[in-house]
Amino acid sequence: MRRPQGFTGPPSARKPPAQTTSGKTTSGKTPAESTGRGATRSESPSTGPVTLPSTDAAGPTNARITRLPFGLSAGRVSGGGTKSASDGARDAAQGARATLTAGAKLTGGAARAGLRAAKRARKRYERQEVRRFTWRSRRRRTNWVVSLAAVVVMTLVVVGAGYSPLMALRTIEVVGASRVSADALVAALEEQVGTPLPLLDFGQVKEELSQFMLIQSYVTESRPPGTLVVRIVEREPVGALASAAGFDLVDAAGIVIESSPDRPAGYPLIDADNGVESAGFRAATAVVSVLPDSIRSQLDTVSAETKDDVTLNLVGGARVVWGSPEESEYKAVVLGALMVGHPVGTVNEYDVTSPDSAVLR
C-alpha cells in the first residue's frame, strides 16, 4: 500500500521543524519533545488520514487531508478533529455519483439517449392510457369486425357452393301430372341438366312448359345438391262442346283438353252462342265450376245466351233457373237443400235466381 504523502516514519524518528513561536524552547523543541515525554507512537493503520502540524502561530488547530486511499477526493477536517473513513467514503461516493450524473447530463450523446428514452416512456404511457379509456369502443369495433367477417365468409361459402359443379342439375321430378305425360315434361327440360341450380334459366323453363296446354300453372322447387321439382296443376275440364269432329272437352277458359267422337261421360254439354268467346259461355262455365259434385254429376246440359240467363238441365227432366253467376256459392247451397227436400222427379223446376226466396214449380 502506498504511503500517504508526508509520512516518513514513526513519530519518534521524525524531527519537527524549529519553531519560533511562544511555547517552544530555543532549540526548536517543545518542552514535551525535549524531555521525551508526551511523544506517542501512532498505532493506526496506514490507510487512515494523516495530520501534519500547522506552522501557524495559533498551534495545530487546522489540518489538511492531502491524500485519501481508494481514490477518494481530498477534503478538510475542521475543529481540530478527524472525519472517519466511512463517513468520508460515503460523502465521497455521494459526491462522485452526483458528479457522474452531472457529467452524464452534460454529455451530448447521453443527453440525446436520455431524451429518446423519455420520449419512448411518454409514448408508452400515453398508449396505455388510451387503451385503458377506449377498451369499450375497441370491443364494439372488434365485435362488428368479427360479425362482418363471419357474414362475408358465409356468403362466400354459399356462393362458392351454389355455383360449383357440385350443385349442377342432375334429376328432374314432375309432381301432379295425370293427363300430361311426365316423361314428356322431363324431356322438354333436358337442356337444363348440368347447369348449377342458381343459374337455371327459368324463362326457358316457362317457355317449354307453356307448350303443354293441359298445364294451368306450375311451381318449381330446387332441392340441393342436384334436383329440380316441377309441381304442375292441370286444367280441370268443366264441360263438353259439340264440334264438327265430335266433342271437345274444355275447361273454364275454353282450352280444349281432349277431343273424342263420343260425348265424354260425367261432363255436361255446354250450349252457348258464339262459342268459347261469348259472355254466355263464360257465365255457364263459372256456374258449373262452383257446383258441388253431388249436383254436377246430375247435370245434363247448361245453356246461356247472356251472362244473366244461365239455365241448368238435370238428368230426369228437371230444370234449374240460375240467372247470373253472382252469389253462385250461395245459390248452390240453396239448390242442394231444395233437392234434398224435393228430389228430382217430384218437381219440374227449381228457381234460385233470388236465393233468399227460392221457388219450386
Rank of each mutant, 00 (worst) to 15 (best):
P4T: 01
A13P: 00
K15W: 05
T25W: 12
T25D: 10
K29A: 09
T30Y: 11
T30D: 02
T35N: 12
G38I: 02
G38C: 06
E43H: 10
P45T: 07
G48K: 03
L52T: 04
N62E: 11
I65G: 01
R67P: 00
R67N: 07
L68R: 00
L68I: 00
P69K: 11
G95Y: 00
A96N: 09
T99F: 07
R112C: 00
R116V: 14
A121S: 13
R122W: 07
K123F: 08
R124H: 11
Y125K: 14
R127Q: 11
T134H: 10
W135R: 13
R140I: 09
R141D: 11
N143M: 13
A150K: 10
V152C: 10
M154T: 15
Y163R: 11
S164H: 08
R170P: 01
R170I: 01
A177Y: 03
E191I: 04
G194M: 09
L197T: 06
L197H: 06
L197Q: 04
L199G: 07
F202M: 07
S210D: 14
Y218K: 04
V219T: 15
V219W: 04
R223H: 07
G226R: 09
V230A: 07
I232D: 01
G239Q: 03
L241G: 05
D251P: 06
A253Y: 03
V256W: 06
V256D: 01
E258F: 08
S259P: 05
R263S: 09
A265V: 15
A265E: 13
G266D: 02
G266P: 04
G266S: 06
L269K: 06
D273I: 08
N274H: 13
G275V: 03
A279F: 02
A283R: 04
A284I: 01
V287F: 10
V288C: 02
V288T: 07
D300Y: 07
S303D: 05
A304E: 01
A304V: 02
T306C: 02
V310H: 03
L312E: 01
N313L: 08
G316C: 11
W322I: 04
G323Q: 05
E326R: 15
E329F: 11
K331E: 02
V334E: 06
M339T: 03
M339H: 03
H342V: 12
V347H: 08
E349D: 07
S354T: 11
V359H: 12
L360A: 09
R361H: 13
